[in-house]
Amino acid sequence: MGVLAAERIKLTSTRSPVWCTVLMVVAVLGMALLFGLLLKLGVDQFNKDVEAGKADPADIPYPTNSIASLGITGLASGFPGFGYILVMIVAALAVTSEYRFGTIKATFLALPNRASVLVAKAGLISVAAAVLSAVLTLLSFLIFKGVTGSDAGRELSLADGDNKVFYAVPLFIVLVVFLSIGVGALLRQSAGALAVLIVWPVLIEPIVGFFGERGEQVQVLLPFQNAGRFLDTVRTDLPWHWGPWGGLAYFAVFVALVFGAALFVVNRRDA
């Protein structure tokens, strides 16, 4: 409990987590608002085409929960995916900043069990980020439904339909935190850790898919693509070897390997 209290003080007494949280809220809710407005305009235009006899009323693209999830997962995907990137920044800096300013030495002197320090950091940040992501996902859905209105949003419902996004996003965020803590502990440098965590899912993994059939065969084995498989934010026509839950398990194993390597390395080398 003392370790958790110390990590809580470190997390709440610095400015970067506060600013990242504010940016996360603005980005995620703003994305839901924008996506909702775009879909409402599309449905309204389609209704005008129906009145003009240019379209079939049965083909009106009323957004469903599954479509709405694409606009309310700014924590996990979308353009440019600010939500989960900011979570990774906070988690990585929680480790690398201590190495940068040398405070990690005092932490390890006070608590020789170094593994418990990393576990406490990851546990505290993951719980806080998961709760925040769950709240933002719900608020995003409510904003999305409110913006689309009673006509365009008639198929949107919390009681009916696919509500996977409400638990999928927090699960993803928890794994992302452990991954970021692990990468930060392995590299120890903020710039290097953030470069890996941002460039890998945003740039490298999507580029692989552009190399034709060979690229797609490699793409389905990449960690963040498998996380997207679980979140339903990537292409479903790729040659996947497993379903959404298999994608989550694959990503979890990858995170466990990175975090396990971080625990091993932290206990073997000097602070």
Rank of each mutant, 00 (worst) to 15 (best):
G192D: 01
P170F: 08
V165T: 11
W200L: 15
E155T: 05
A168D: 02
R188F: 04
Q189I: 12
A195S: 15
A195F: 05
V196I: 15
A191F: 15
D160Q: 10
L171F: 08
G161T: 09
L175Q: 06
A168M: 07
I173P: 00
N163Y: 00
F166K: 04
A195K: 01
E155L: 08
V174E: 03
A168E: 09
V183F: 09
L197I: 14
V174N: 01
S180N: 06
G182L: 07
L194E: 05
K164M: 06
L186C: 12
L179Y: 02
V169I: 13
L197V: 07
P201T: 14
R188P: 03
N163A: 01
G192K: 09
L194N: 06
A185M: 09
L187F: 13
L187W: 11
V199H: 01
I198K: 05
A193M: 12
I198W: 11
G192S: 09
L187M: 13
A159Q: 08
V165I: 13
A191Q: 05
A159S: 11
A185Q: 11
S180F: 04
N163I: 10
L158K: 08
G184P: 07
A159G: 14
F178E: 03
I181A: 06
A185G: 11
V196A: 15
A185N: 10
G184Q: 10
E155F: 08
V176M: 13
W200F: 15
R188D: 03
K164G: 14
D160P: 00
A193N: 08
L197P: 12
W200V: 15
F172C: 07
L175A: 13
V177G: 03
K164P: 02
L171W: 03
R188N: 05
L171K: 05
V177W: 00
S190K: 02
L194W: 00
L187V: 15
D160T: 11
S190F: 01
V183E: 11
L179P: 01
L175S: 08
N163Q: 10
N163F: 02
F172S: 12
I173A: 04
L186N: 08
L158M: 13
L179I: 05
F166P: 01
L156C: 09
Y167R: 02
S180I: 06
L175T: 06
F178K: 04
A191I: 15
L186Q: 10
V199F: 15
D160E: 12
R188G: 04
Y167D: 01
V177L: 06
V177Y: 01
L179A: 09
F172D: 02
V196N: 08
R188C: 07
G182T: 10
Q189P: 00
L179D: 09
E155K: 14
V165M: 09
W200G: 00
L156N: 10
L171N: 02
F178I: 05
F172A: 13
L187N: 09
G161V: 10
V174G: 00
A195V: 15
W200Y: 15
V174W: 00
A185V: 11
V177E: 04
S190C: 02
G192Y: 04
F166A: 06
V183R: 10
V183A: 14
Y167I: 07
L171M: 12
F178H: 01
R188H: 10
S190Y: 01
K164R: 12
A159L: 13
